[in-house]
């Protein structure tokens, strides 16, 4: 199925993955220069998940996101410059500087927002699914969360509810093996989060989360199922974050061999090799895309850096609608 994707689609997916990677590398760099207030949770390494899932979605479909949400925003089609401006706390950011890295939303593209409470976005995705059902449209919701969140009560309450009502929700577990410093095996007695699907009577799929085409294919099936009114699917994407949990975290709890093993499975590297091998793209085209994406990122940084901060009194605005 995946091989039937058009060249245009493959290029778009590769470009999105690169946008996320380059964006995150730039955020990390700005952070090191003390230009980013607060903390950051980088998505680098997990690009195949957001892009593999969101490449199946329409503009009017919804997603919910997490504290590690830059990649979700970009994959759903958010403007890089406004994401960057928000991360820098600028007035031109998506949330006028009120949200920051962990709370970006763009309702114009169905990005319903990132919540920084682990598991907090899962019931909200169910509500969006319920809304779709009540409004009788064929939209779907992709709900991103980590394996850590699958230990929250909200995960279980939400999947049960979505399964019961056959809501058009795709639950996407980004299993990056660690919830902060807690390895999955120290937080749950099972190996596959997807196995939990059986408890709620819905399909559960495990997929290589560093293979964008594999993610695309599994998500495609789940989206089709959701659009047809057949209900939710739980997809577990096995992946790995390249950096620590947040900016202060050197991730010393991860064995060196494990990190090396996962870095070798870099989703962008693998996709690039695949594209070259199948002659979908040639090296020159890849280089051209890289150049273009780098320029986009520079432009986003310039926009964000040159944007003004909100005036202090704006802190008092938007408490109530």
């Amino acid at each position: 199925m995946a091989l039937s994707l058009t060249k245009e689609k493959l290029v778009e997916m590769y470009r999105k993955m690169l946008e996320i990677r380059f964006f995150e590398e730039k955020v990390f760099e700005l952070y090191a220069q003390n230009l980013v207030p607060g903390t950051i949770h980088l998505y680098a390494g997990e690009e195949a998940v957001a892009v593999g899932v969101c490449s199946n979605l329409r503009k009017d479909d919804y997603i919910t996101s997490t504290h590690r949400g830059h990649g979700h925003c970009i994959a759903k089609g958010a403007e890089l410059k406004r994401v960057m401006a928000e991360i820098l706390g600028k007035k031109t950011g998506y949330c006028k500087g009120k949200g920051g890295s962990m709370h970006i939303a763009d309702f114009s593209i169905g990005m319903l927002g990132a919540t920084a409470v682990v598991g907090g976005g899962i019931p909200i995705a169910v509500g969006a699914g319920l809304s779709i059902k009540l409004r009788d449209t064929d939209q779907v919701v992709a709900c991103f969360f980590g394996e850590g969140a699958s230990n929250q009560g909200t995960f279980h309450e939400s999947i049960n509810m979505a399964a019961l009502w056959k809501l058009p929700v795709i639950f996407v577990c980004e299993n990056n093996l660690y919830a902060m410093g807690t390895r999955q095996s120290r937080a749950m007695a099972i190996e596959n989060v997807a196995d939990r699907a059986i408890a709620y009577g819905i399909p559960g799929e495990v997929v290589d989360g560093n293979d964008v085409l594999a993610v695309y294919e599994v998500a495609w099936k789940a989206v089709e199922r959701a659009r047809k009114g057949e209900g939710p699917t739980l997809i577990e994407c096995k992946t790995y974050r390249h950096k620590g949990h947040s900016r202060i975290d050197p991730a010393k709890y991860r064995p060196k061999e494990e990190v090396e093993e996962w870095l070798a499975k870099d989703p962008i590297k693998r996709f690039k090799e695949r594209l070259l091998q199948t002659n979908a793209l040639v090296e020159a085209e890849i280089q051209q895309i890289e150049k273009e994406v780098s320029a986009e990122i520079e432009e986003a940084v310039k926009f964000a850096m040159e944007s003004p901060y909100p005036t202090p009194e704006e802190a008092l605005e938007d408490v109530y609608a």
């Binding site: 919804y62 919910t64 309702f107 319903l112 927002g113 907090g120 899962i122 019931p123 909200i124 995705a125 169910v126 509500g127 969006a128 699914g129 319920l130 809304s131 779709i132 059902k133 009540l134 409004r135 009560g153 909200t154 309450e157 939400s158 049960n160 509810m161 019961l164």
Partner: peptide, 28 residues
């Protein structure tokens, strides 16, 4: 029954579902 919806005993998901519906065009 669609508009007067019995739910499982899941208070967090009840309010969370209301939030998700409210931000996508409904008035729960």
């Amino acid at each position: 029954d669609e508009r007067v919806r019995d739910t499982p005993i899941s208070e967090s998901a009840i309010v969370g579902a209301a939030v998700g519906a409210a931000i996508t065009g409904m008035r729960p």
